[in-house]
Design a protein around this nucleic acid. Structure first.
Length: 837
DNA sequence: GACCGCCTTT
C-alpha cells in the first residue's frame, strides 16, 4: 500500500492545500500486478506507448490496460476491457471509477459504485473518497450514507492524519446534499481537521444562511491555528454577495486583505456580480476598477457581470469599452459575455448592435434568445420580437416561461392588451406553465395602461387559483391604489404583505409611502417612512412629494434638509419638488438660488421639469413677462409642461396675449395630442373665442373628446362617476342636489359680488361635476365621513370656494385630487391655501 | 468557491 499512501490526496472541492497537485494529469499507477490477475496478450500496441522490443509480445494486465486507455482519453475502450473482465478486484474498480472521476463524470461513478458494493468489493480509503465526491456532486445521499458507514466500519474515520481526507469527503458530501445536521456531527467528531474541513463546514453554513455560525467557525479555525485561505474567504464573500449582503461582503474583503490573503478573480467576480444582482451597478463597476488596479485579470464571467452593470446603468460607452476588453481576453464569442452584450446594447437603445452580437454568438442558449426577444420587445418592436419568438420554435429552441413572459409584457406595454392576454391563455397549451411573473406582467401592464380595476381583478383571480403573489406582484399592484378613491385598499394591501410573509422590501415601502400619500393619508405615508430601514433617494422623494401634495411645503423643505444631513444626494426629482415647495411659499429668491446653482452644488443639469416649475412659479406670482422671457432664453426646447404652466398663469392673470401665445405653441407641439386638445379647449371655453384658425382646429378636436371632465367618488364600496355633460343621468337625485346647491349658492353670493364669466359658463353648460359629486356624497354617505373625489381637470376657483363652504357647513372633510394637486377641505379652508386654483 | 434573460418603487 506504500505507493497508494504517497499518491496525492484527491481533489476535494474545499481542499485548498492540494489544488496544485490535483490539476496535474493523472499518473498511471505503478503497483505490480498481483499474481491472481490473468495476463492479457496479443493486444496491439497502444499509440504513444512504445513496446520495449518489437519482437516481444506486449503483456499488460487488464487493470493496467484500463488505466492506459483512460490516460489516452479512450474511456469506451477502458470500459470494454473492464466489462470483459471475469474477475474484478479492487484495483480494477479503482481504475475504472478513477477514469470517470478524474474527468468529473460523476454520474457514471455512482452506478458503478453501487454494483461494486453489491459484488462485495470493499473500497479502500482512496476509492471511498472518490465515490463520496461523486455522491456530493450528484447529491446522492443514499450512496453517500452507505459510504460513510463503510468508512466507519473500515476504520477510516479515526483520529489520524490520513483519515482527514476521508472525513472531509464525508463532510463535503453531507454539505452538498444539504444535510447540515449530519455534517455537523461528522465535523464535531473529526479528531483532526485541515483547511478543507473548515471550508466545507463554512460553505455548509453559508448555504443554509447560518451566517452567525459561519462567522463563529471563522473565529474558531483561527483559534485552532488554521488560517483561512482564499477559498474560505471567497466562500463567505460570495455567499454574502449573492444574498444581497454586499456591505458585509465588502467588510469581509477588507478582513481578507488585512489577513494577507490576496483576493483573486473569483473574489472580485463574486462582488461584481453580487452588486449587479442587487441593482447596485455603480458599485459593481467600482469593484471592477479596484480589481484592475490590484492587477487581477478579469475572466469572461467578470467581464460579463461588468457589462450587465453597464446595461442596468445604460452606460453605452463604458459598455463598449468592456466589449473591446472582452475581444482582447478572447471571451467575446463566449455565450456568457455575448448574452450580456446583447442585453447591454439593447438596453442602451442600440438594437442593431445587439442583433449583430446575437448573430455572432456561435452556440446560442435560451438566454441569448430571450435577451434578444426582450431587446426588441422593450424597444417597442413587438413584431420583430414575435418573429424571433416564432423562429425559436421552428429551430427547435425550447421557449421557456421567461420567453413567454417577455412577449406578454412586451405586447401589453405597447398597448396591445388583446395579444398579451391571448399569449397568456395560450402558453399552457404549449406546455409552458405560467408562473408568478406571467401574472405580474399582466398586472403591471394593466396598471401601466391605466386599467387599475382590471389589474385588481387579475390580482384576485391569481390568488383564487392559489398562485402566491411575490413582492413584485405587490409592487406592481400598489400604484393601482395610489388614488383617493382606493384609500381603503392601501391598508388592505399593507396587511396582505404580512399575510403572504413578504418582507417589507425597500421598494415596497417606497411604493406604499406614495400610495398612502396619494390616497389622502399623509399620516400613513409618514408612518411607513419613519419605519423604513433602508431609505434611499426614492424614499426621500416620496415623502417630500407627499408633503408637497398635502400642501405642506415647509415640511417638505424640512425633509430636504434632513435628507442632506443624512448624506443622501438629491436627484432631478428632489430638486423639482424643492423648487415647487419654495414656489408655494412665494420664496422666489430661494428658488433662483437653487436653480442657478444646481449644477455646481449637486451636479445636476436643469431639465424640462425644472424649467416648467420655474415658469409656473414666475407665472403664478404675476411675473408673466419674466416667465415668457425665461422660456425664450432656455437652452432646451420647451415642452408641454412648460407651455401649460405659462398658459395657466396667463389665463389666471387675464393676460390674453401670452395665453394665446402659449396655446398656439402648445397646439403646434402636437395637434393630435388629446391632452393638448383638452388644454386648448378648456382655455378657450373659459375665455371666449377669437378668429385664430390653427387654434380653432385643436379647440374643435378638444370639444369632440368625450368626458371632457369627469370625477369619481366612492360611497359604500361603490364608485360613482360624474361628468359635467351628463347631469340629466342623475334625474332622481338632481332635485335634491339642486336644493343643496341653492343653499350653498346663497352663501356664495354673499362672498362674491355678482357673477363672473366662469359662473355664466357653468349656467350654460351644466353644473361642474365635482359639485354634483359633493352634493351626491353629502346626501348619500354617513355624516362625518370624509368625501373623496378624483377629477380629471383642474378645479375652477368657484368649485374651490364651493367645496370650502360645504366643508364648513356640513362639517365634512372633502378631499379632491385634480390634475394638479390634492385639495383637503376642512372647516372652510383648503390645504392648498388657494394657491392651486 | 462565481454565471447572463422576464415581472419592480418617486
Amino acid at each position: 500500500m506504500a505507493a497508494f499512501a504517497q499518491a496525492p490526496p484527491l481533489a476535494l472541492h474545499f481542499q485548498e492545500a492540494t489544488r496544485s497537485s490535483s490539476s496535474q494529469p493523472p499518473r498511471p499507477r505503478t503497483r505490480p500486478s498481483p499474481p491472481a490477475q490473468r495476463p492479457t496478450t496479443a493486444h496491439p500496441p497502444l499509440p504513444g506507448t512504445s513496446p520495449s522490443s518489437a519482437s516481444e509480445p506486449l503483456i499488460v494486465s487488464e487493470t493496467k490496460l484500463i488505466t492506459m486507455h483512460s490516460c489516452a482519453g479512450r474511456l469506451e475502450d477502458a470500459r470494454k476491457v473492464f466489462e470483459g473482465m471475469a474477475c474484478r478486484d479492487l484495483l480494477a474498480w479503482s481504475a475504472m471509477i478513477g477514469a470517470y472521476a478524474i474527468r468529473g463524470l460523476y454520474k457514471e461513478v455512482v452506478p458503478l459504485a453501487v454494483t461494486m458494493v453489491r459484488e462485495g468489493v470493499i473500497p479502500d480509503r482512496f476509492l471511498i473518497t472518490r465515490i463520496l465526491q461523486a455522491c456530493a456532486y450528484t447529491e446522492d445521499l443514499e450512496l453517500g450514507v452507505a459510504m460513510h458507514s463503510l468508512a466507519i466500519q473500515s476504520g477510516f474515520m479515526v483520529e489520524r492524519a490520513r483519515d482527514v481526507p476521508v472525513g472531509n469527503s464525508v463532510l463535503a458530501m453531507y454539505v452538498k446534499c444539504g444535510e447540515l445536521g449530519r455534517a455537523r456531527v461528522v465535523f464535531e467528531n473529526m479528531g483532526q481537521r485541515d483547511l478543507g474541513t473548515w471550508n466545507s463546514m463554512i460553505f455548509g453554513c453559508c448555504q443554509s444562511n447560518e451566517w452567525e455560525e459561519a462567522r463563529r467557525l471563522l473565529d474558531d479555525m483561527r483559534h485552532e491555528g488554521t488560517e483561512p485561505g482564499v477559498i474560505t474567504w471567497n466562500t463567505l464573500i460570495s455567499s454574502y454577495a449573492r444574498s444581497g449582503e454586499l456591505d458585509v461582503a465588502m467588510e469581509m474583503l477588507e478582513q481578507m486583505e488585512e489577513s494577507g490573503v490576496a483576493p483573486d478573480v473569483i473574489t472580485w467576480t463574486s462582488l461584481v456580480s453580487g452588486f449587479v444582482y442587487s441593482d447596485r451597478g455603480g458599485e459593481a463597476l467600482r469593484c471592477f476598477m479596484r480589481m484592475r488596479l490590484a492587477g487581477v485579470e478579469p475572466n469572461g464571467m467578470t467581464i460579463a457581470s461588468a457589462i450587465s452593470a453597464c446595461a442596468s446603468l445604460r452606460l453605452l460607452s463604458q459598455g463598449m469599452e468592456l466589449h473591446c476588453h472582452a475581444i482582447k481576453v478572447g471571451s467575446v464569442n463566449n455565450v456568457l459575455s455575448g448574452n450580456s452584450l446583447v442585453d447591454m446594447y439593447a438596453k442602451c437603445g442600440e438594437i442593431v448592435a445587439a442583433k449583430r452580437i446575437f448573430n455572432e454568438i456561435p452556440e446560442k442558449d435560451i438566454f441569448s434568445w430571450n435577451s434578444m426577444v426582450a431587446g426588441y420587445a422593450q424597444a417597442g418592436y413587438c413584431g420583430k420580437a414575435y418573429e424571433l419568438f416564432c423562429k425559436m420554435e421552428s429551430l427547435g429552441v425550447r421557449r421557456n416561461v421567461i420567453t413567454w413572459n417577455i412577449m406578454i409584457s412586451g405586447y401589453i406595454r405597447n398597448g396591445d392588451d388583446e395579444r398579451a392576454f391571448e399569449l397568456f391563455q395560450m402558453m399552457e397549451s404549449y406546455g409552458v406553465k405560467r408562473d408568478t411573473a406571467s401574472w405580474n406582467a399582466l398586472i403591471a401592464g394593466s396598471v401601466h395602461n391605466g386599467h387599475s380595476d382590471r389589474a385588481l381583478r387579475i390580482f384576485r383571480q391569481m390568488q383564487s387559483l392559489l398562485v402566491r403573489p411575490d413582492y413584485i406582484t405587490i409592487l406592481s399592484i400598489i400604484p393601482a391604489f395610489a388614488n383617493l378613491v382606493a384609500f381603503s385598499k392601501v391598508r388592505e394591501i399593507h396587511t396582505c404583505i404580512f399575510h403572504n410573509y413578504l418582507e417589507m422590501d425597500g421598494k415596497i415601502a417606497n411604493a406604499l409611502i406614495n400610495a398612502y400619500s396619494k390616497s389622502g393619508d399623509l399620516a400613513g405615508a409618514c408612518a411607513v417612512f419613519d419605519r423604513h430601514s433602508s431609505r434611499n433617494i426614492i424614499s426621500w422623494n416620496c415623502i417630500i412629494l407627499a408633503h408637497l401634495l398635502h400642501g405642506s411645503p415647509s415640511e417638505a423643505l424640512d425633509c430636504f434638509c434632513e435628507m442632506k444631513q443624512e448624506g443622501v444626494l438629491p436627484d432631478h426629482t428632489t430638486l423639482t419638488a424643492v423648487i415647487k415647495a419654495y414656489g408655494l411659499q412665494g420664496k422666489v429668491s430661494e428658488v433662483k438660488q437653487i436653480f442657478y446653482n444646481m449644477t455646481h452644488d449637486y451636479n445636476i443639469t436643469p431639465d424640462l421639469d425644472h424649467y416648467a416649475a420655474i415658469v409656473d412659479l414666475l407665472g403664478r406670482s404675476g411675473c408673466l413677462q419674466e416667465a415668457y422671457e425665461f422660456i425664450d432664453n432656455m437652452p432646451l426646447i420647451p415642452n408641454l409642461a412648460v407651455w401649460e404652466a405659462l398658459l395657466t398663469a396667463a389665463t389666471i392673470h387675464g393676460n390674453a396675449r401670452l395665453a394665446n401665445l402659449a396655446a398656439r405653441e402648445l397646439s403646434s407641439l402636437d395637434p393630435s395630442d388629446t391632452r393638448i386638445q383638452r388644454l386648448v379647449f378648456n382655455y378657450w371655453d373659459l375665455t371666449g373665442k377669437s378668429a385664430d384658425v390653427p387654434l380653432m382646429t385643436v379647440y374643435n378636436k378638444g370639444r369632440e373628446l368625450k368626458d371632457v371632465d369627469s370625477c369619481s367618488v366612492e360611497i359604500k364600496n361603490k364608485v360613482y362617476l360624474f361628468s359635467t355633460s351628463d347631469n340629466l343621468a342623475l334625474e332622481s337625485t338632481v332635485a335634491e342636489l339642486k336644493l343643496i346647491m341653492i343653499q350653498i349658492r346663497m352663501s356664495l353670493l354673499n362672498i362674491c359680488n355678482g357673477t363672473d364669466a366662469e359662473e355664466e359658463k357653468e349656467e350654460l353648460s351644466g353644473i361642474h361635476c365635482e359639485k354634483l359629486a359633493i352634493a351626491f356624497a353629502i346626501s348619500n354617505s354617513p355624516p362625518l365621513r370624509s368625501i373623496r373625489i378624483i377629477k380629471t381637470l383642474r378645479m375652477c376657483s368657484r368649485c374651490h370656494i364651493f367645496a370650502k363652504l360645504v366643508s364648513e357647513k356640513y362639517e365634512r372633510q372633502i378631499l379632491i385630487k385634480d390634475s394638479n394637486c390634492l385639495h383637503k377641505f376642512k372647516d372652510g379652508k383648503c390645504s392648498c391655501e388657494d394657491k392651486n386654483v
